[in-house]
Computed example of a mutant assay.
Amino acid sequence: MSRRSERRERRRRRRDQLTPDQRADRLKERVYVTFAALAVVLALRGHVEGLTPGQAATTLVITVGGTLLAVFLADLVSHVVAHNHLPTRAEGRHMVGVISSAGGVVVLPLVFLWVAASGAWTTAGALTAATYALVASLGLVGYVAVRRAAIPTWQKWLLLLAEVVLGMAVVALEVLAHG
């Protein structure tokens, strides 16, 4: 078995060991951070004149990084309030896993901005591609969330549709706000 296959298998085993609440935490924060990244990308797109790919990437990384730290702090404080003690090592690992998983949403937008920095795309083109990728990511996260759910298929499709429609509504509102 190759190293890549071994790593994939270890990740799958770790994922399978998560409780339903832990899986829900990861999905919830990934959706939240995706919407935050989408808002930033759309705001940058609305003010793209004179914006370099590096500036756009820096803004995106700082904003998403700040959001992830806020999520971590909120989880930490709410845990202490609910349980009257600091998280155990396992609970702390879970909290870090949640934010690191959610941080993955910016990878593709950063790749697009890197392509723009190389001169192959414009900054506006990279931000447009990032918008589509983030909305598609919402659909993918929704699919991952409902694929094993014990609900009728039509409800699964309805949930996926609702998530993508809400993503597109965020795009429309941001475009309206930033004209």
Rank of each mutant, 00 (worst) to 15 (best):
A43D: 15
R45N: 07
G46M: 04
H47Q: 12
V48K: 10
E49R: 09
G50A: 03
G50M: 03
T52W: 04
P53S: 15
P53Q: 10
Q55E: 11
A56T: 08
A57W: 04
A57S: 09
T59N: 06
T63N: 09
V64N: 04
G65Q: 14
G66A: 03
L69D: 15
L69T: 15
L69Y: 15
V71T: 01
F72W: 13
D75A: 10
D75N: 12
L76Y: 13
V77T: 14
V77P: 05
H79T: 07
V80M: 09
V81S: 10
V81Y: 11
H83A: 11
H83I: 04
H83D: 02
H83K: 06
N84E: 13
L86P: 05
L86C: 12
P87K: 02
T88M: 06
A90Q: 10
E91R: 00
E91A: 08
G92F: 09
G92Y: 09
R93H: 15
H94Q: 13
H94W: 03
H94T: 00
V96C: 05
I99Q: 00
S101D: 08
A102P: 00
A102D: 02
G104Q: 04
V105G: 08
V107E: 12
V107L: 06
V107P: 01
L108G: 02
L110V: 07
V111Y: 07
F112G: 02
W114S: 12
V115S: 07
A116W: 01
G119F: 13
W121R: 03
T122E: 12
G125V: 08
A126Y: 05
L127D: 00
T128V: 15
T128I: 12
A129V: 04
A129L: 13
A129H: 03
A130S: 14
T131V: 06
T131G: 04
T131F: 04
Y132M: 10
A133M: 05
L134D: 03
V135S: 01
A136I: 08
S137A: 14
L138P: 03
G139M: 08
L140Y: 07
L140K: 00
V141A: 12
G142I: 00
G142E: 00
Y143E: 11
V144M: 11
V144R: 08
V144T: 12
A145H: 01
V146M: 00
R147D: 09
R148T: 06
A149H: 10
I151H: 03
T153S: 03
T153P: 01
T153H: 08
W154K: 01
L158Y: 11
L160R: 04
L161Q: 10
L161G: 07
A162G: 15
A162Y: 08
